[in-house]
Design a binder for these strands. Structure first.
Lengths: 247, 247
DNA sequence: GCGTACGCTAGTGTCGACACTGTCAAGACG
DNA sequence: CGTCTTGACAGTGTCGACACTAGCGTACGC
């Protein structure tokens, strides 16, 4: 049940507008959203012939779209080998969250310095509507609002390099979202974190904001880890290991 | 006078090994090193036909190589327009250094936590040989040693996400290197900074290390800014403005 | 029965051709 | 004399074809 804004947000996150032909953009959006929504499983082959048939194009634009997604960490490509949906290891995931924590803390600090009062009230408005979505347990809508909130914050801060990196990291974590926010109760915790954050911004307390971000990120990672353990515990015993010898 | 290790380091920074065909790698290395060494000027057109002639290939691998460099911020591509060598604005440069400062501080903190004594002595050895290069005013060799030092540090820390981002940022700053380290005296300052850093690592003082990194990065940015001002002051009056209205 | 060598096939990387579009210059028009 | 239109050309995006290779099943040797 993908949220209807998915393709639009993806288009922005991948910076497709004006940077790529519509054809490439279309393919990248389809594959990218497929990975994020779980329609395409980690490790699955992304046969470029099949994709070109599906979109009734040649393989050239398909290759280009896959290369785009590779750079965002959603797809793994090795020369002469079939592209696959990325399947990050637990260590990879930890690394990503660690960097993300640092950069989000940086974002918070800059936001406290630079955001106007009007911008802060706008952010508060966003968080309040996220509270509604969390109450309705509308996971998809909540998640995309979350992404858009971060997008808006990076926009306010105005550091394009930071924005691009955070967007890329957001995409990587996005493909884990069914592992984190779907856990019951996570949504409520998450929105609580956001509210506290906004308050710290309004009080212009950069230290507090950074600390809150760090805490929230750690909790998000922990949720992902727990979910991952459950998943492997559920799928491993039957012997359906994706790869690696079962010895 | 490019340093002889340039292509090898570039190959690692661009993660070309096994990820791309040798043909693509070759083109990416040539163009990438050209940009870094100043053989290709910012804003210059990167005609894919001309490049394909130069390498006696079709345009397909050329396009792929250019896309690779685009993702590293060395090349700018817009759909249906000729690819150009990136010409970052002053604001872009400031943004890059700001993010880089933050991530290098993170790197320093992790290094203090995780590096073994042996690894630290290895790093010290590298810095000492950099001191020699600085004394000889061998700017190119110094610069590539600097890059390799950072590479090694990210390797020791072992966070691949952090490594990739820092590599990418290093490439972007690399194309500004003739703007920063060529300034007389900069080399000596830079190596001083590195020595103080190593000492902080050895004393396991993460706070100090982060602070030193931040200071060093700020100084590097300032050097770039001053050089940029001189350049524009020298080239603008004749009326060779690249773009933007002179009002 | 187990491991290895061989051959087939699906899929990748590269190519040259073609249609379309941005770009620049010469000419038309005021 | 300056501005706008027009047209040619250069360069891009896409295509279908081809050579080559990785992956896999089969047959063979042991």
């Amino acid at each position: 049940m993908p949220h209807q804004d998915t393709p639009l947000v993806l288009e922005r996150l991948l910076r497709l507008r004006d940077r790529r032909e519509p054809l490439v953009a279309q393919i990248a959006e389809w594959v990218g959203s497929g990975i994020i929504e779980g329609r395409l499983q980690p490790g699955q082959d992304l046969n470029s012939v099949e994709l070109s048939n599906r979109f009734e194009t040649s393989r050239t634009p398909v290759r280009e779209a896959l290369m785009l997604l590779e750079q965002e960490g959603l797809v793994e490509m090795k020369a002469r080998r079939r592209p696959r949906v990325a399947s990050p290891s637990l260590q990879d995931i930890r690394d990503i969250y660690q960097v993300r924590r640092q950069l989000l803390a940086m974002l918070a600090g800059l936001l406290v310095e630079r955001a106007t009062e009007d911008e802060l009230t706008e952010l508060r408005g966003r968080v309040e509507s996220m509270r509604d979505l969390a109450d309705k347990e509308d996971v998809d809508a909540y998640f995309w609002s979350h992404v858009q909130l971060q997008e808006r914050m990076t926009e306010i801060v105005g550091n394009t390099t930071l924005k691009q990196i955070l967007d890329s990291l957001a995409l990587r974590t996005l493909m884990l979202r069914h592992l984190s926010l779907t856990r019951t109760g996570r949504l409520a915790y998450s929105v609580d974190d956001q509210e506290r954050l906004i308050q710290a911004y309004e009080e212009r307390d950069g230290e507090l904001a950074s600390a809150l971000i760090a805490g929230a990120t750690v909790r998000a990672l922990r949720a992902v880890e727990e979910q991952l353990e459950q998943d492997t515990a559920r799928t491993r015993p039957p012997g359906r290991a994706k790869r690696g010898r079962t010895s």
